[in-house]
Write a protein that binds this DNA or RNA. Sequence first.
DNA 1: TGCATCCATAAAGAGAACTTATCCATGAAA
DNA 2: TTTCATGGATAAGTTCTCTTTATGGATGCA
Lengths: 298, 298
Amino acid sequence: MKLSKQFPLNALRVFEAVARLGSFTRAGHELGMTQTAVSYQIKLLEENIGAPLFLRMPRQIELTEAGEHLAPRVSEAFAILVEAMASMRKTTEETLTIHSTATFAQQWLSRYLGSFQLEFPHIAVRLVTSGHIVDFQKEAADVAIRWGRGDWPGLISHRIMKLDFAPMLSPKLAAEIGGVHEPEDLLKLALISAGDPWWAQWFAAAGVKDPDLSRYPKSEFGTQILDASIAIAGGGVAMLNPGHFQDDVAAGRLYQPFELTGSDGRDYWLAYPENRRNVPKIRNFRKWLLEKFDVQQA
Amino acid sequence: MKLSKQFPLNALRVFEAVARLGSFTRAGHELGMTQTAVSYQIKLLEENIGAPLFLRMPRQIELTEAGEHLAPRVSEAFAILVEAMASMRKTTEETLTIHSTATFAQQWLSRYLGSFQLEFPHIAVRLVTSGHIVDFQKEAADVAIRWGRGDWPGLISHRIMKLDFAPMLSPKLAAEIGGVHEPEDLLKLALISAGDPWWAQWFAAAGVKDPDLSRYPKSEFGTQILDASIAIAGGGVAMLNPGHFQDDVAAGRLYQPFELTGSDGRDYWLAYPENRRNVPKIRNFRKWLLEKFDVQQA
DNA sequence: TGCATCCATAAAGAGAACTTATCCATGAAA
DNA sequence: TTTCATGGATAAGTTCTCTTTATGGATGCA
């Protein structure tokens, strides 16, 4: 179906109002234009069709046969458009799409999102976890939780969590080797995702010279969640973000032998497009999230 | 349902084309506008909705979830509008509404209209007979057959038949009184619609002095058809337009004793609004009608 | 590496649509 | 009957949306 540029959409909109209100003047009033403009549009439409749509009586107008035929179809079509646009606006206003790293989603969001829903029951949340960094141009995302340096152009970023890391293992495994007292003790155990640069960085910070990490398998699992699962199962020592695994530590599933944490200068950030900072659902989410992390807000 | 002036109808039209063709450039081409204009309209719509409708990939675009949701509704609505307008145009282009006097409709149009339908099979004819003079402003009429002086402002008028009149009666009735030889003979018979000024006018033209028409009943029947029926039934002499009753004369039902006809300067005219003279159905009807009456055409 | 394709942006221009001012016709009220 | 209020039509001038022109950036293809 082709809709040429000269299809009189505006005139039809005006016609709909006039047909419904039975008056040029009233229609103009509703549409926020003068009676003259209404008259002009109706004339345009009548010329386009080639037949009068209204009978001009002294102090009133009446639909002609043609107008009587056209009116219901026009209002039906416009009703569909209005309804479609309304539902569109509603869903975009009321569903918040969060892109997040898998780890953050699982270890943090999944636990606390409930309180957000309670606080903002009319906002539906769609949580999308993806490995790659979100491009707001290309994905229908409202906000993203990323890690990095927070210097993304066009985005507003709030640091929500320091991304530091420390070795963690199951208390049982630690006991098996008579406890972990010195950083070097860790080298007796399997290092999970040993290829991760965080290992070398942490050992360097701990003053361990030449830990020879090359003798461990180089496999990497990509998400801390997996590393953590292995560690909890006693499969070795994982390099994890303590902030994410406080619960497991508290429950005795994981044990962090050293306070020392490493950091590569990258942290967790909440980010969203600068030009959408005032969209209510985004503002609400930002406020809620930053409060949870006790971040000073502007 | 209210459709405010800023409801983005144009943008929706553009959106429909883009969604269907999958390209700003192609949509612009179809709509007869540049890619830039399409881009502008889509952006407008996206701002109005508050969510992107297309994912901008390097060399292609893709509907977002939102766009995917909106597109079918929009095309449905526009399909209804297009269909309604098309059927509207079609019926107004293809049905010709003729307003006519009852006499002309019955005595002339009803007999010859068939040949018009044969010649223009795609034009449907609606024939409306009405006593009052048609106001093209107030009635959905395309053409009118009227009698008068042809000097109606805003209308184009073609004289199609002289409106003259002559006494007519049934041959049988004429024989009963030994034939009608002199105008005075008519006064022996009942004069139908004797109050009609045409009687006085005709007798004056015939040189009959003081016919004393007041002794006849003053009843008038309004249409020549009725007068004619009475005359055919032998109920008296009627003052009729010979042009309308040629067939009855030929068939021996009526008899016109004198060649002399009266006229009050008013004739039958085909009339239609000046500004619609080039509407095809009107042009076709005018040509056909004037040919039937051998009228010189411009 | 160069060319073609496709969309985005900025600035300037065109033209449709709107407003102001005025008129006309009619019905109701004085 | 005259006057006033209502509702629409018309003409001319103006506004402002939409469009185009010009340009740039990104990507895929040869």
